[in-house]
Design a protein around this nucleic acid. Structure first.
Lengths: 214, 214
DNA sequence: GCAACCATGATCGAGTTCCGCTCGGTGTCG
DNA sequence: CGACACCGAGCGGAACTCGATCATGGTTGC
């Protein structure tokens, strides 16, 4: 199986949609709804985002929004899901290009992908905010956390068998990176390079200590 | 000036209250409102918290809530502010008891205080969530971020002069610690010890590298 | 072939409900 | 009795519902 196949571009998509789109036009509409939401998130932030705005900008009626999403939050969750998929895809591309040999190399590609998307993908900030509290808010397994996705990607990319220990360290690394990178973009739309550099350094140090090269 | 004096227990309190309470009973009411809000945050999360709930649980009318707070978010901000003050106080206590000599020792006390409050203080989770997006959402200086508070505390506790470099490293450390600790409590009300331990280790390693003892 | 047909997916938007917040009137403290 | 504190019906707006309407693509009869 080629390395890109697990990037999941054609996976079942948002978990919480009400109705799977059958016809082509409706799949388009769903994407346009998410695009609208993404733009609005960037423009006014996600708590001021209203379902009416989403509908209007996408040229749809409010009812259409609720055909696909059970509630306002679900739109944001779906938006995050799409962002995660794009992150996966881009990470895989970078990893293939770099031909990483260590966990650290691979994770560095992940950081690069994250930064790129933060800069280019509208509404990517959602990655940091929707996380807990809004999500299932219980049950460990309910949340397919970013770290798990990354572990899967790594397994494919550099043929690592990920045991519980590596999963744990990756989760810590992801938490740290997410926090620092989000700080980098908090007051600077282009992302403060100082924080980004520090993020790479911190994560590399963390992953290389007691883990050496794999 | 004794070390505890900057803990700010009797500082002007929430920045965004509408009316400073004059009579004693109203100060009590304000605290009861915050207590109610804290409980509700723990029970159903802060986006499902409604002003009506706060009022009802505190045995007050809705109008009373709005006598003290301009809007719903202000309640959460005030709640966070109170939590930060208690964090300061507890940190100072622990630092005094430990008689710390290095930045790391002091920060470790901060972590301990944070964990304690996460366990004992209702609604303390708010510390992690209210941060950006909801707050001023622009202007670097507008946000009195936790890292700045910590820097102030350290300055008092171990007489450090905090330059820009230390501020930066502290901010990184705070971001990391906040992220990992919040993860520790995300699915475990008591806080997953493994994450807490890893948090101490990570922060210690980070602060001791290239900074040595102060 | 193809045109009429129709089951079902997709869309619509007025209407309902619920929530944030106001404001003028009523208690209660000093 | 003046100022402080409190009350809660009511207003505006946003989340969400639901029955009516339109579009699509497969089926049927010729």
């Amino acid at each position: 199986m080629p390395i890109g196949d697990i990037s999941g571009v054609d996976a079942p998509l948002p978990t919480r949609v009400r109705t799977e789109p059958i016809q082509q036009r409706s799949a388009d509409r769903l994407n346009r709804l998410l695009d609208s939401a993404a733009e609005i998130v960037d423009e006014i932030g996600f708590d001021r985002l209203t379902t009416a705005m989403i509908a209007e900008r996408a040229g749809a009626a409010i009812g259409t929004v609720y055909r696909y999403f059970p509630d306002r939050i679900a739109v944001l969750v779906a938006l995050r899901e799409r962002a995660v998929q794009r992150f996966r895809l881009r990470s895989m591309q970078l990893m293939r290009a770099a031909g990483p040999t260590s966990v650290w190399d691979a994770v560095d590609s992940g950081i690069t992908a994250f930064v790129e998307l933060y800069r280019s993908e509208p509404g990517f900030r959602i990655m940091h905010f929707i996380d807990r509290e809004r999500m299932p808010l219980s049950a460990e397994e309910a949340e397919p956390h970013l770290a798990k996705r990354l572990a899967d990607i790594l397994e494919e990319a550099i043929g690592i068998t990920h045991d519980a220990e590596l999963d744990f360290r990756l989760e810590i690394a992801v938490e740290m990176a997410d926090a620092i990178l989000s700080r980098a973009f908090a007051f600077d739309r282009a992302g403060d390079e100082r924080y980004i550099e520090e993020c790479r350094r911190v994560v590399r140090d963390y992953l290389s200590s007691e883990l050496a090269a794999v």
